[in-house]
Write a protein that binds this DNA or RNA. Structure first.
Lengths: 223, 223
DNA sequence: TTTCAACTAGGTATTTTTACCTGTTTGCCA
DNA sequence: TGGCAAACAGGTAAAAATACCTAGTTGAAA
């Protein structure tokens, strides 16, 4: 069984080097090269034999690698994409993973690692080195961790209750009915909330509630 | 160098089995056992020698493993926690990773894998099997993917602009000034936004903007 | 037992938002 | 070139939110 590879990188010499390298591996063929994202997409479109794996550089003219990756993954979900770059910023890596990258290779990686990455992505749909995995895990943890510890602007239980209903798009009158209160009371709570959170209006209250986990965006559904 | 292990599981036999197993590994000692989350926390509190690694079952009475994990990770960030369970539901796994789990072991794992997991977490702060890694990656992708493509309630560029300013707590008048428009025009856009998003008021607009990534919570800071 | 914060609720006034309307201009596309 | 959507803007009214007040009750803590 043969693995079909494509490569996208704006540096010709690098492309050629990779082509030679890939050619030297058993059961792998480089089927085409692209020098920017646009060309890559066009070639994927027109190619009779579709690539199994794409080695994708992130910094390219015309259409950058990240955007190309997103489009590719939408069109060809089964395609394996190995991001191949010198960038090592965490956010950059996270963005590529979130966009659906199947693997990540530093440009100064050993040839053996390239081969390993290709074979693993082909077999397991997945190849990341340990440091990348750490970053991935942090990316997952970050979503929850940093927001959990706060709470304290001295929001009382009743105020919190009112705030939650405000976020559910109820008016003060409706909230008053639900809680068996006068609407003046609800307006009082509302006012205190504005003061305590330093908000100017409802928009600020909603953002505060989200930031402080008083409501959870996941529980609000739209069509 | 010795690795200190603790175990929390509600089944006594399982605990004892694990204790024997851990005892058979080089340079590892089981320093205490707990049969529920509460006991685990108490023991961690009172222990003179703190554990390096905790083998943590998720389904326990009193205080379940997930909640215990969250508390532990807040109190002792450097502690390595290996989740040890029969649950294999994706969401469950994701939740433990988000709570800060350093590794994951199925209860039917081979003894060698237990040893490997402990040593890797001790050394790299990290041990996950390939299927878990796949789930992690999916968890990361999910965060962005499902929200990005569903932009389309036909919000126009101008409407989006107005929406962003609404989220920044500006009133229609202020937005009108900023955009050099009549406030009636802004009110018009605002109305269209309510209609298109199916919201009842400003609160709904803010939530919509967040859900559809028209604004990013991270860019809004409170004290 | 006094003190305090939270919860309750009312008054009055202003500003803002929401709800329905109408209408013009502009640029794009079939 | 005719149609259409988007952006623009005005009228009128009602509803809601914001601003700044006062003040009674209650339960817990000092």
């Amino acid at each position: 069984m043969n693995i079909n590879i494509a490569i996208a990188d704006d540096q010709k010499l690098f492309r050629k080097g990779m082509a030679a390298l890939v050619g030297s591996f058993e059961n792998m063929s480089l089927i085409f090269e692209a020098e920017n994202g646009k060309e890559l997409l066009a070639l994927c479109e027109s190619a009779v034999i579709k690539p199994d794996i794409i080695l994708l550089d992130l910094s390219m003219p015309e259409l950058n690698g990240l955007d190309a990756l997103k489009i590719l993954k939408e069109k060809y979900p089964k395609l394996g994409v190995i991001v191949l770059t010198i960038h090592e910023a965490e956010n950059f890596i996270l963005a590529t993973i979130q966009a659906g990258a199947n693997g990540y290779l530093a440009k100064n990686a050993e040839p053996e690692e390239v081969e390993l990455a290709i074979r693993e992505v082909y077999k397991n749909d997945f190849h990341f080195t340990l440091p990348m995995l750490e970053i991935m895990r942090k990316g997952l943890v970050k979503k929850i961790q940093p927001v959990t510890f706060e709470n304290e602007d001295n929001i009382t239980a009743r105020e919190k209750e009112v705030l939650q209903l405000i976020c559910k798009q109820f008016s003060s009158n409706e909230i008053a009915e639900k809680l068996f209160l006068s609407n003046r009371t609800v307006e009082g709570h509302r006012n205190n909330l504005l003061l305590k959170t330093g908000s100017r209006n409802t928009a600020g209250l909603v953002l505060y509630a989200l930031k402080h986990k008083i409501i959870d965006l996941a529980n609000f559904s739209f069509s």
